[in-house]
Design a protein around this nucleic acid. Structure first.
Lengths: 359, 359
DNA sequence: TTGTAGGCGTTATCAA
DNA sequence: TTGATAACGCCTACAA
């Protein structure tokens, strides 16, 4: 099956017996400038040849592509899934299409992909960046490219950005633990360098551990966990237990704040393997960005034990907001940069219900 | 910050004191046709102005974009995520970029997006289609567009396609249930019209129920479940139980085959809520396309009860293969259409371990 | 209401 | 080794 040559606007013009200009007008909805007769003939010609205008030629001429480049730090997470879905819906509503690129957690890859997207004339960028220190994006932004960051910020430069308000709910969770009577808190986190949401949560933790729990060096209550390594969480738990042992050998109570859902699950499994019980002496809580699971009817956080206390983020909503924001910035390039915070919902469940359990 | 005009090949030509042609040659790696001096000047000019060639103009001229359109039926599943990741990696290795579109399970959306992708001169298409009966793709294919289907086929037309071999492992699982001594089998599936993998699994089930279990009307052992509806699985379980009640009121054993991971989890939860035990009298098994979870160190299928019997698919590998295949088809448009089956791994766990449990 | 002509940023052809 | 020049398919003054 040989590839036929594509039909172009000229073909239609000839077939309909009019000029390219007229056809172009027809395509762009300016039918009120065209005689009914011509309209008919053009319509027919287009239909017969099943002609589709070339977005490429149009982009070249108009310098607009109606394409938005979407760069995701790592697509292999449930968070990214919901994000993409939201972005996709939001852009479509505004007549734009996403070109999507997966940086695979590599700043170099992110740079390369971003350049590729730019050379394809994308009208704007939505970026979930791998790097807090992203010179390239700052340059692009300075050069006038509409850019919206999502979930991760960039230092030393003012960007449009969509965020979940991680600090507040983190503190809410920790204060709840405090009120429940936990003696200690601990934070289990993936490496947090260059990753602003984790940093934000860390800061909230440190502040709370210091102020509410009166701990002098709260960083000592922070444990680095690699959920990709099956043993990592177990090792952290062992270290934690050592610290919690009282003089009588009994464990003091401690509520663990996990940095994200995946870390939380790894931690949960580790706790169970150590034959420790939840919520006493160990409590567990953290963010829940697995909206997709809920949407599928699976409330995962209720499946583990008797339920894990979480705050739910809404990545899909974040995606939608980001989409709206780029489109807005394209229309109004010099408008004020915006920070949008999408709402979060606290869900207190058994995993931190120390008071009740003590009786 | 006003958007500066973009620098073009002409700017570079002027700055370097050469012609556009020479610059073009430089860009395209034909530096051996250029004098060392000119090379130097061009390099310098490009560097100073941080010039990036326009992929759009190039596409228009060469009729190649190095863009592959990727249409996914529904991105809101972990399966799709892994798929995308695989595609993304595979394409990148070959110098192509994915433009990705989410059809949101709607054939109309799929059509619209596909047309949009085509008008952007994509060199090929990778499609996880919503519709078995997809006239549009057949036409495009006939017109010479390189298309690779992934996970879902299209009736009445020969396409390049990447599939998991659902039939064989489904039968393996069911025969295993038979050998374990289950008296009945049942299938819990999402609606399967227009969805080839589910259909394939259904056919395998029907055949097995008939031949191995001697059931006359195997379709009566098929239950439609909507995992998005929390009650749906529960209702199906109740119906099933009615059928399993023997004369003495005791339940006969039955192994449930779930159609996919999400349905399986919904089913698992429903079984537990009914206070039924696994694997006796109810067994549970099905496919596992949650590779991402394992990659994150969470072997989910071991987390539920004492482990669920599954066969693991490898969506990431499927994506990679699809990427390789489009690229190949672009290079060799008239080559034989291929069907690629990616491997699958059987994991037998406690949820179907009836024999052992009986003692 | 319609058409002509020029150009968007490249590459390809041909000649020098 | 280099460079004019003509496309690629479309849009857009400007003119008729």
């Amino acid at each position: 099956m040989p590839a036929r040559k594509k039909t172009t606007i000229s073909d239609i013009a000839i077939a309909a017996g009019v000029s390219k200009t007229t056809v172009s007008r027809y395509i762009n909805g300016k039918q009120n400038m065209i005689s009914a007769a011509a309209c008919k003939r053009i319509e027919k010609a287009i239909h017969l040849s099943n002609y589709h205008p070339s977005a490429v030629a149009r982009s070249l001429k108009t310098q607009r592509s109606y394409l938005i480049g979407v760069v995701i730090a790592n697509i292999t997470t449930p968070f990214a899934t919901s994000l993409l879905h939201g972005i996709s819906m939001g852009l479509r509503d505004a007549g734009y299409n996403p070109i999507f690129a997966d940086a695979e957690d590599s700043p170099e890859t992110e740079l390369r992909l971003t350049e590729s997207l730019m050379s394809h004339q994308v009208d704007g960028l939505i970026v979930n960046t791998t790097t807090e220190d992203n010179r390239n994006l700052i340059e692009l932004s300075n050069a006038g490219t509409p850019i919206v960051l999502i979930d991760r910020f960039i230092r030393d430069h003012n960007f449009d950005i969509v965020l979940a308000p991680y600090s507040k709910p983190t503190i809410d969770l920790l204060m709840h633990a405090h009120n429940e009577g936990y003696r200690h808190i601990a934070m289990f986190t993936q490496p947090y360098e260059e990753n602003s949401p984790r940093e934000t949560r860390l800061n909230a933790f440190v502040q709370c551990d210091n102020e509410a729990f009166g701990v002098e060096r709260p960083m000592e209550d922070v444990y680095i966990v690699d959920p990709w390594d099956a043993n990592s969480a177990g090792i952290a738990i062992k270290k934690l237990i050592e610290k919690l042992k009282g003089d009588d050998g009994k464990l003091e109570t401690c509520c663990i704040l996990a940095t994200n859902t995946v870390t939380m699950i790894a931690t949960y499994n580790a706790i169970r393997e150590m034959n420790l019980t939840i919520p006493d002496p160990i409590g567990l809580c953290g963010p829940d960005d697995w909206g997709w699971a809920r949407r599928m009817g699976w409330d995962w956080s209720a499946t583990f034990g008797k339920g894990i206390s979480t705050y739910e983020t809404d990545p899909e909503e974040m995606g939608k907001e980001a989409a709206k924001l780029v489109v807005k910035r394209i229309a109004d390039p010099n408008g004020q940069k915006q920070q949008i915070y999408t709402p979060t919902t606290l869900r207190l469940r058994q995993s931190t219900d120390l008071k009740h359990t003590l009786h």
